[in-house]
């Protein structure tokens, strides 16, 4: 008797489980391998610190929903760059993100005639879809590939137009390939970004003289020291639409997963010349909470 009950119970629960599998999403199960959700970029998308990756945010896998939140501060000689945001990952397939960027001009604000401590603000709305591949599993030479869109709204329209930008709104398009080469404990990412953003949009988009979208590159390489610790370097090319001598960005970073849910990233970031103020190099600190 007991055996039959067990068998029919199993059949029912197996059936129910398979139905649930098809219909129900698991919330915040935390199934991803630690760090494979990436850190959070200053634009809110998952990735390195300044480069967007093909990763999907949150700790969910194929039948779950995950979330993450970040706060990042970059302390530069003449400026303070701060970003915070949230992101949701669905089925390790779709990522929707929002980030607010605040760029404090400190004393430079006065020198530029904007006023002491003038702060540029920008909202970034992002969406990313994983097309194919898996950064950990599958063919060791087939990367995880994702396409993304980042719609940016600069909240200082009159100022960025005065600086020479054509618009206070712009949209970036990205395609990224990320792979963890386990044999060498090395993660590599390459991203191509089609963008017209000046200083990622903080100084508006395009130029009044007609400069528009161009193709830019983001590259990251990281070495896994342990399950929880990674060191690496990133580079991000940028256009100079405003003829202000805008430089490419570089950083050297170390990321550590304090727990399965909290990742901190510290970096040395070289953001070059910003608004004619040269040699903007400083400390990049970021914390991410993910479920």
């Amino acid at each position: 008797m007991r055996k039959i009950v067990l068998i029919s119970g199993c059949m029912v629960s197996a059936f129910c489980a398979s139905v649930a599998q098809a219909e129900e999403l698991e919330w915040f199960e935390g199934d991803k391998l630690v760090l494979t959700n990436g850190a959070s970029t200053v634009e809110g998308a998952s990735g390195g610190g300044i480069a967007t990756w093909a990763t999907i945010s949150g700790l969910e896998m194929d039948n779950g929903v995950g979330v993450s939140a970040h706060i990042t501060a970059i302390d530069l000689p003449d400026f303070g760059f701060q970003s915070h945001g949230v992101s949701i990952g669905i089925k390790n397939r779709v990522e929707l993100s929002y980030a607010r960027q605040n760029f404090d001009t400190r004393d430079v604000g006065e020198a530029l005639g904007l006023g002491q401590g003038y702060v540029f603000n920008q909202d970034v709305f992002g969406a990313k879809v994983r097309l194919f591949g898996d950064m950990v599993y599958g063919d060791p030479l087939l990367p995880q590939v994702s396409v993304g869109v980042q719609h940016k709204r600069n909240l200082d329209g009159p100022v960025v137009r005065a600086v020479g930008a054509a618009d206070d709104e712009g949209t970036d398009y990205t395609i990224s390939a990320t792979k963890l080469f386990l044999r060498h404990s090395i993660l590599m990412n390459a991203t191509v970004r089609y963008t017209n953003a000046n200083q990622t949009g903080l100084l508006g988009f395009g130029s009044a003289s007609g400069k528009g979208h161009t193709v830019q590159f983001e590259g990251s390489i990281a070495y896994q020291l342990s399950r929880r610790a990674v060191i690496g370097a990133e580079v991000r090319t940028k256009p100079d639409n405003l003829d202000l001598g805008e430089d490419d960005w570089i950083d050297l970073f170390a990321a550590y997963a304090i727990s399965d849910n909290i990742t901190v990233t510290a970096a040395y970031a070289d953001l070059g010349s910003i608004a004619t103020f040269e040699d903007q190099r400083g400390a990049f600190l970021s914390a991410q909470l993910a479920f």
Partner: peptide, 15 residues
């Protein structure tokens, strides 16, 4: 850890 990953590198492609 680097050696741990070497074993994983053989297993991961079998996913």
């Amino acid at each position: 850890f680097a050696d741990q990953n070497k074993l994983l590198s053989k297993l991961a492609p079998m996913s």
